[in-house]
Design a protein around this nucleic acid. Structure first.
Lengths: 109, 109
DNA sequence: GTGATATATGCAAATATTATTATACTTGCA
DNA sequence: TGCAAGTATAATAATATTTGCATATATCAC
């Protein structure tokens, strides 16, 4: 499943911050190095993973590599992740639809 | 970060299928056991992780545990994951906004 | 060419996740 | 009370991810 791979790529504290920054605009490796408090090789490793997954890409600018967002699912996902959800989903009305269930459906939990 | 934890919970082929099924309605453990081809303890472990994260909950019905969706972010996330994105995001117009970058911005990549 | 800057890569160690197995708990029913 | 169905938990083994470090590559300025 492609979707799971995308999710796994985003589901990391460093990579989600990288993506959030890229949502604001183009950034090069040393820009990330400044505000993420990790080593340059580690930044590169995360960027390279995101690129392997096709989520971002870069262009060369002198000796800088300028990274930018590529996969359109990213802005949508990031937006949902910042959204405030106040209410829980409504609890199911009653009685499970289960092949084994002819039980009355009394909620004891 | 809470969001990363949520993403990690969803970013697994079994758990994403569990959540998709729960989107359709209530299901008990043995229901999952049937269509996911994994062992009962493994199903329980995934369910229990999802519950620890507050994404799902259950009620007792006889000796069945009937699981249901609880966190409203799930339907939104699942929807985006099934959406078709045809176009890539537009490439950035020009020239990086980088504190080091006064480079001309020629794209050599 | 030489040196400095910007970034990537390879590999091993540390850590986290997942599946498996065996066992325990709980409920309903005879 | 005792047994079976449904499910959970604990311990462990297998696997994947992440990080740190040393080193490599590429480009620019001189």
């Amino acid at each position: 499943m492609q979707r799971v791979e995308v999710l796994k790529s985003i589901a990391h504290p460093v990579r989600i911050r990288i993506l959030e920054e890229l949502l604001k605009g183009v950034k090069c490796v040393s820009d990330f190095e400044d505000f993420l408090e990790i080593s340059q090789p580690n930044v590169s490793q995360h960027l390279s993973l995101l690129r392997r997954q096709g989520l971002i890409d870069y262009y060369m600018d002198g000796r800088l590599r300028c990274y930018f967002l590529k996969d359109p699912i990213i802005p949508d996902l990031l937006e949902i992740l910042t959204k405030d959800y106040i209410e829980e989903l409504p609890a199911p009305a009653c009685c499970p639809v289960s092949k084994r269930g002819t039980y009355p459906g009394a909620r004891k939990h």
